[in-house]
Design a protein around this nucleic acid. Structure first.
Lengths: 249, 249
DNA sequence: GTCTATAACCGGATAGAC
DNA sequence: GTCTATCCGGTTATAGAC
């Protein structure tokens, strides 16, 4: 049973075929959405057989994985100038989030689906899931950068957790954006505008000695809880379980 | 084209058949999960034909709708004693959330799927979606009750928004719970324990005059944003669109 | 209006030959 | 690595019975 060469040895030709399939899929997803795009259409557009498409991507969902990577790369690129220019925490945060919305806009319809898959813990696409740990780490790292490059003073205990908190906040923004039907997603941009200011004020408040007890309580809770919330059952060493996702979809 | 009698005229016999199908589905979902449960199996377990099952439930997803209703009814029931007994805000909130976890526990595996569907704005199951507005309203109403029955003093502007905020908080708890693989979902219970205390402290702080400007800014943002975040395109009056969910799934 | 039975369509996924 | 053939299950359609 030759499994798909997900991260495994890749020949140059295989690599090219794989890329062609992914590109075809992303193009169709963007043009028609996810459901309307059949694996058969993807295969045809890529000029390969249906079976061959499945050789490279174990399921239709796995094709979405390529989207995450692409999306984050685009985001990094768009955020670069902001991070280079701004030193104010709020300005950095705001710029990075708006960059996220900008780069995601062409995929708005499609992103809804992503969020659906992302909420399913069994899905390999779930950002909490081990397989996507990489994507999540990178997103958190970006928030760490937002913070590190700012002149804001943040208590050490909070600073350790803040990037993760900001990432969760970013997820919330994206969730709103996904549901946002306003023209040009204007309301999402307003939301970023408003809430980044609030976040900045809260972070500033966190240094207030009067609020130290509360801050410490919050950080302690985070510490206790942050031990990988998705520490799900390890996959049995040396092989896939008998059926993949045997129970839930 | 006779459509399914969703809210429409129901004869007693039809009502009974409908209930039998739903019960069969919920049982199978709970026992085997969603994917593993075929519509054919549901029909067989309910003692009806496949066609008949589709006569009552337009799609497999629609069966999930029954779950929301059942789940909330169970929650209300379990929360009743707590709400009758406790007057302390934090105790009420904690009791209600733990009741939610308790009543949801048998459906833990299955609930993951629900969350997947819930994140999809096109899905009729999405709690933000109009079709489920009812379910959401009820959940928010429960939180309003948590607040109203408590002796806590909350500034009026915040009090108006707090039930919704608490509901979002509840959603976050559920999201964590869905991903919680600890035995007996112990970590989720700890999370409720810890965070309800933090929430109570925050609510108490909200009355502090020193923090009034921040509170007002937050409430104003909420007011501006709360104008139905999912005000998606109205469905064309007088009929279903040509294809349902033509683009996204 | 409620229901059965059956056949068919469609698309995701798999098996096994080349 | 790639293909063709096939399976499986959600969904639809039809035709008719109570």
């Amino acid at each position: 049973m030759p499994l798909t060469p997900d991260e495994a040895a890749r020949t140059p030709r295989g690599e090219e075929t794989r890329a062609r399939i992914l590109a075809a899929a992303l193009g169709l997803f963007r043009a028609q959405g996810y459901d309307a795009t059949t694996m058969r259409a993807v295969a045809e557009a890529a000029g390969v057989s249906l079976g061959n498409a499945y050789y490279y991507f174990a399921s239709k969902e796995h094709l979405l994985h390529g989207f995450y990577a692409q999306s984050h790369a685009d985001h990094l690129e768009a955020a670069r100038p902001v991070l280079a220019r701004e030193r104010d925490f709020r300005a950095r945060l705001r710029g990075v989030l708006l960059a996220k919305l900008d780069t995601s806009e062409p995929y708005h319809r499609f992103a809804q689906l992503l969020f659906g898959a992302a909420a399913d813990p069994e899905s390999p696409l779930n950002p909490f899931h081990a397989m996507s740990a990489d994507v999540r780490r990178q997103a958190v790292a970006l928030m760490a950068d937002v913070l590190a490059g700012a002149k804001a003073k943040v208590p050490a205990d909070l600073a350790a957790r803040l990037p993760e908190l900001l990432w969760i906040y970013e997820m919330g923004i994206i969730l709103f954006w996904v549901h946002d039907a306003s023209p040009g997603r204007a309301r999402s941009r307003v939301l970023v505008d408003r809430t980044t200011e609030l976040v900045a004020r809260l972070v500033k408040l966190a240094s207030n000695p009067l609020l130290a007890p509360l801050r410490k309580a919050i950080v302690r809770t985070l510490d206790d809880v942050a031990r990988d919330p998705s520490a799900a059952a390890e996959p049995p060493p040396g092989g896939e379980p008998a059926g993949r996702r045997p129970v839930q979809g």
